[in-house]
Design a protein around this nucleic acid. Structure first.
Length: 282
DNA sequence: GACCAGGAAGAGT
DNA sequence: ACTCTTCATGGT
């Protein structure tokens, strides 16, 4: 079984990384193995101390996917700007932001709007089951996440069994847009954060929050700071108590929060966001 | 049944 | 550029 030996300065927690809610297609079995479908293959992986044991993908893929090349300790030191984030960091140490496949991440966060994590997971699994390709792995059938054309080549109504609600036309429309625009991801990737954000928001179903998640989780734009209801609550209670108590989140409040975070935590404020989010129920 | 969840679109100002 | 309303689904 292939393994990766982490060096003593290579901070990493597989469980924190896969369990924090940034990805939706990983499951952990009772005996500690994580199973996930990534980039058209099934991966089985677990951590034992400083060893990562895995099967189903090359080591170079694993290292890149989990961004093991990044100096996490330096990143955490740079965002460690106050006692509250300090506690969140120490409780979730080793959490790394994954380099997610871009197209899957885009659809995942269109599915995420106004929903909880179990519901999001079910929607994405259902899309894969109906439009992806089956893979048999250790006696069980898994499904790849479909290409854009696999969705756009059909009808809008083909998505109905996935129970996406009002997101159904957004998923279909964005699938068509991305099918039409070849290399949409390379176009986004070349742009700086602000311009990339504007481009993403042009897609149906992608607003400020989804765009920031996609930029953070798939495009390595670590200066993005997604604001959902949890982050807003945490920021209100610990950093910006003057914000409104119970009104819907406005664009202005969203910008106030992310601008504060960018100034307070620095260029890796996206990492700060993920540690704060991981600490939301602790 | 009310309320909430990793919000966004569209219409009306 | 700002409110306000509506949107479909599942969990608690």
């Amino acid at each position: 079984m292939p393994t990766i030996n982490l060096s003593s300065y290579q901070q990493f927690s597989l469980d924190k990384t896969l369990g924090c809610g940034q990805v939706f297609r990983w499951d952990q079995t009772d005996d500690g193995w994580w199973y996930g479908v990534v980039d058209g293959r099934v991966v089985r992986i677990r951590q034992e101390g400083r060893q990562i044991i895995y099967h189903g993908a090359p080591g170079s893929f694993i290292k890149n996917y989990f961004s093991l090349d990044l100096d996490l300790m330096s990143i955490l030191a740079s965002i460690d700007q106050d006692p509250f984030i300090h506690t969140a960091i120490s409780r979730n140490s080793g959490l790394r932001i994954i380099r997610q496949p871009k197209w899957e991440c885009l659809i995942s966060y269109i599915c995420s709007t106004n929903s909880n994590i179990p519901t999001i997971r079910r929607r994405i699994a259902s899309i894969a089951e109906r439009f992806g390709k089956p893979i048999d792995f250790e006696g069980k059938t898994y499904f790849t996440f479909p290409e854009p054309y696999s969705i756009s080549c059909g009808e809008l109504e083909d998505l109905t069994p996935c129970r996406l609600g009002y997101r159904q036309p957004y998923i279909f429309g964005t699938s068509c847009s991305v099918t039409d625009e070849k290399c949409w991801d390379e176009m986004i990737e070349k742009l700086p954060y602000k311009d990339a954000r504007k481009e993403l928001i042009k897609l149906k179903g992608v607003g400020p929050k989804a765009a920031d998640c996609i930029l953070l989780f798939a495009f390595q734009k670590y200066e993005s700071f997604p604001v959902d209801v949890w982050i807003r609550r945490i920021m209100r209670e610990n950093y910006l108590p003057d914000l409104l108590k119970n009104a819907p989140l406005t664009v202005r409040d969203y910008d106030t929060i992310r601008n504060f975070a960018r100034n307070h935590f620095g260029i890796y404020c996206g990492y700060a966001q993920e540690y704060l989010y991981a600490a939301r129920k602790q």
